[in-house]
Design a protein around this nucleic acid. Structure first.
Lengths: 333, 333
DNA sequence: TTTAAAAATGAATACGTAACCATTTATCCG
DNA sequence: CGGATAAATGGTTACGTATTCATTTTTAAA
C-alpha cells in the first residue's frame, strides 16, 4: 500500500507537505503543488481514511440500525438515510437488528467509533438508551421513541391509530380487529392507544380478544389470520398497526378467497410507497410531509454532528387519512 | 475517550497486557486477567476498531454498492449480504449508485480501505473494473458481469429471457413486447438476447419497435406505457426484463382499467418475494436456489477474503419458470 | 540594501492499537 | 536446592495520517 511518505519521497518533499496538498492546497506553492500532484497520480496514491480518522477523531461514518428491509417502510427510510449521508460525504454502516443479535450489533457499533447513530430499533425501556447517552456520540431515534422521550422523530402514533379506527367506524364497522406488535415498542403502543381511544369516543366496545398483540413476523401473522378465520364472529374490518402488517394480511386473505374490501375492510398505517400500487391500493394513515421519517431524522442527526443543534430533538409529525380501495361501507346483511 | 493505556494505568499493568487480555487471554495469568477485566468494566473501555484496523491492516468491513431498494431484488440481496457480513463479525458500508454519483461512491469506497467489495452496479465495459483489479481488494459482482467475465455471480440471463418468451409463445401469444433496460448492462443484454432467440426458434418475428430499451426509472417506464397504449396494434403480452419493471407496469395498466391477465399477459424475471403476493401473483423466471444471488455472492466474497478461494469466480445459476396468474392463453377474438 | 513580516516547508509527535523482542517470574526435574 | 525451561509480562515500535512547532525562504516595507 502506497502511503503519503512514499509520495513525499517520490516528489522530494516532506510528508507534511503531501498532507497539506490534500487538505490546504492554498498554503503550498504552485510548483511544489504540481510536483506532489504528479507523484500522487503516478503512484496511484489514495489517502487512508482510517489513519485520518485516528488522528482527527472523526470517522465520517454513521451507523444505521434498522428494521428489516422486507418491510417497505424500512427500505424507504434506509434509502433516504444512506443517500443523505453519502451526499454529506459520509459512509453508512448498516445493521439489521433482531431479537437474537442486538448485543452484537450494539457492540459492533460502539467499537467502530462512528460520528453518529440513527436507529429505529429501540424498546420503550431499552437499557441501551443509557449507553447511547453515555457514549457521547450524537444519536437519534426514528419511528420509535424511548420512555425518556429524548431525541426522536416519529409520527403522531396516537393520532394515527385514532384516525384509522375513526375511518372504519365512519364506514359503519363495529366488529373491528386491531392487529399490532408488542407494546414494548412505542409505535405499537401509541397506535393501539389511539385506536382504543377512538372506539371509546364513538361508544363502541369490543371484546379483549379483538385486540391482537402479536409478533410482526410472517409466521405469527399467519397464525393470527388462522385464528381469526376460526373465530365464530369474524371481523368486518381490520386495523393493522403498519402497512407491512396490512399487506401481509391481504396476502393471506386474498389467497383464502376473501375479497377486499367487499368481504373485509383493511387499513394500515405508514403510507408506504407500495401501498399506492394499483394491485394493493391500501387505505392508510400517513404523514403529510412527503420526505419521510428517515429523511427528517438523518437531517437532524447531521445538525447534531455539526453541532448546530445541541438541544434535545423531539419531533412528532401530524398524519392524515389516505383513503384508497381496501376499505368500504359495512353492509348490513 | 478512554484508551488501552488508561486501562493499563488503572490496572497497574502495561498496555501490552491489556491488549493480550483482549486478544489472547489464555496467555495471561488469572489474577492479572481479572485486574484488567475489572479496569475495563470500571472505565467502560471499548477498544477502537479504527486503530486496530490501522495496525492489523484489516478493517473487518466490506463495501456494498447496490441498486436502489425500491427494487425488491436489491432489498432482498442487501438483506442477505448485510446479515451474512454481520454474522462474520463484519460491518457493511452501503452505497446506492446512480448515474450522477458513481465517481464519489467509488472514491469513498477506495478511501476507506475495506476488506472486500460486493457490487451489482457495473456496466459491461465499465472502466472501474480495472481499478478494482488493481486495488488488490477482493471483490465480486452479483447480478451483473463485466465484459472480462471475471468474478461474478449471476443467473443464466439468456436462459431466463428464453424461458420467459417461450412461456408466452406457448400460451399462444405472438404480439409480444420486450421491455428492458440499457444493453450496456449484462443482465438486460443477456435476457433480451434469450428473448430474441426464443422468438427465432419459434419462427415468430416481431417488429423492431416491439423491443423497447428504456431506463428503468418510473418516469421512463410510464412514457413507455403511454407509447404502447397509443400504438395501433397493442401487444397481448409483455415480457419485462425484471420483476421490478413488471410490477411497475402492472400498476400503470391496472390503473388504466386494463385487466391482467385477461386483457394483457405479463411476465417478469427474478422471482422476487413480492411477486408471490396474492395481489400481484406475478408469473416470473427465477433461480431454483432459494438462497438468492446476494447470499451466493457474499459467501464467495468471504471465501476470497479468507483466502480460501483465490481462483476467478464465475457462477451462473440455472433458472426455471414460476407460473402464477399474470399470464394466460391468448384469446383469438 | 536592510529588516521585519509573511509565506512556505520540514521535523517531530500524537492518535490507539497489535506485534516484536527483551526481560522477569514461575515451574519442572534431577 | 539449582539450573534449565516455560510462562508471563513489559518496553518499544509501526501502522498512515494531521497537527504543532521550528526553521528556512520569500516578499514587502523602509
Amino acid at each position: 500500500m502506497v502511503s503519503s511518505k512514499d509520495v513525499a519521497k517520490h516528489a522530494g518533499v516532506s510528508q507534511t507537505t503531501v498532507s497539506r496538498v490534500l487538505n490546504t492546497p492554498e498554503r503550498v506553492k504552485k510548483p511544489t503543488l504540481k510536483k506532489v500532484m504528479d507523484a500522487i497520480d503516478e503512484l496511484n496514491y489514495i489517502p487512508d481514511g482510517n489513519a485520518r480518522s485516528l488522528v482527527q477523531r472523526k470517522t465520517r461514518t454513521i451507523a444505521l440500525i434498522s428494521g428489516p428491509l422486507h418491510n417497505p417502510f424500512f427500505s424507504e427510510t434506509t434509502t433516504a438515510i444512506i443517500n443523505y449521508a453519502n451526499a454529506e460525504g459520509f459512509r453508512t454502516n448498516v445493521h439489521f437488528i433482531n431479537d437474537e443479535n442486538s448485543e452484537e450489533v450494539y457492540n459492533s457499533v460502539f467499537e467502530n467509533k462512528v460520528d453518529g447513530i440513527i436507529l429505529s430499533s429501540i424498546y420503550l425501556d431499552d437499557p441501551i438508551f443509557n449507553k447511547l447517552e453515555k457514549s457521547g456520540i450524537p444519536f437519534i431515534l426514528f419511528n420509535r421513541k424511548h420512555q425518556s422521550e429524548k431525541n426522536y422523530v416519529e409520527i403522531d402514533n396516537r393520532q394515527a391509530g385514532y384516525l384509522a379506527a375513526a375511518h372504519l367506524l365512519d364506514k359503519g364497522h363495529k366488529n373491528i380487529v386491531w392487529i399490532g406488535g408488542p407494546l414494548t415498542i412505542s409505535t405499537f403502543k401509541g397506535r393501539m392507544e389511539g385506536f382504543i381511544q377512538a372506539l371509546e369516543d364513538h361508544q363502541v366496545t369490543i371484546p379483549k380478544e379483538r385486540i391482537v398483540i402479536t409478533d410482526t413476523k410472517r409466521e405469527e401473522l399467519y397464525d393470527t389470520f388462522l385464528a381469526l378465520q376460526k373465530s365464530t364472529e369474524k371481523p368486518t374490518a381490520i386495523c393493522a398497526a403498519t402497512d407491512a402488517i396490512a399487506i401481509r394480511l391481504m396476502d393471506f386473505y386474498i389467497s383464502a378467497g376473501i375479497r377486499i374490501p367487499e368481504d373485509l375492510s383493511i387499513i394500515g398505517i405508514d403510507n408506504v410507497e407500495l401501498s399506492r400500487h394499483a394491485s394493493l391500493n391500501l387505505t392508510t394513515i400517513g404523514m403529510e410531509d412527503e420526505r419521510g421519517l428517515g429523511f427528517l431524522a438523518v437531517e437532524k442527526l447531521f445538525e447534531m454532528i455539526y453541532q448546530k443543534n445541541k438541544s434535545c430533538i423531539q419531533i412528532q409529525k401530524s398524519v392524515r387519512l389516505f383513503e384508497r380501495n381496501t376499505t368500504m361501507d359495512h353492509k348490513f346483511i
